[in-house]
Simulated scan of single mutants.
Amino acid sequence: MINFFRLVSLLEGISYILLLFIAVPIKYLQGNPEYVKMLGMPHGLLFVGYIVLAIMLKYELNWNGKTFGIVSLLSILPFGTFFVGRYLKKAEA
């Protein structure tokens, strides 16, 4: 399940970057909200999946509050989810 979580974190990060740095500027600079509509739903689903998987892994792997907090915080920082796999490997060691 941890490998699936890493995949979801990567996809969530990509969708967040596309939304923040491509879709939102197009919406506000060119007045075209279509890209936000197109990318918003997949990003939202990936974000919810990320959080649900993080909660499941918290109990499955007995994460302490700090580990869960950092994994959760990384989900809202741009580029943060790209570091989740590395952080978890470091935390496991």
Rank of each mutant, 00 (worst) to 15 (best):
I2A: 07
I14C: 08
F79H: 05
K27C: 08
E92M: 13
K37P: 03
K66G: 05
L7R: 13
V52A: 11
L74F: 07
F5C: 02
L20P: 03
F47V: 06
G49Y: 00
P33G: 05
I76W: 00
A54P: 02
R86Y: 11
L29D: 12
M1P: 07
Y59Q: 15
L57S: 09
L29H: 11
I14M: 14
P42F: 04
N64G: 15
F68Y: 12
L19P: 06
F4W: 09
Y28Q: 03
L29A: 14
L61A: 13
F21L: 15
I70E: 02
N32V: 13
Y28A: 03
M1H: 09
F47A: 10
N62I: 03
L10W: 15
L73S: 11
L11N: 10
P78S: 02
G31Y: 08
M1A: 13
G80D: 04
P42V: 06
F47S: 10
L19S: 11
F68Q: 03
R6H: 12
M41H: 12
K58C: 12
E92P: 01
F82N: 03
M1K: 06
V71K: 02
Y50G: 04
K27H: 06
P42D: 06
F5R: 00
V36M: 09
S72D: 01
I17L: 15
V48I: 15
G65T: 13
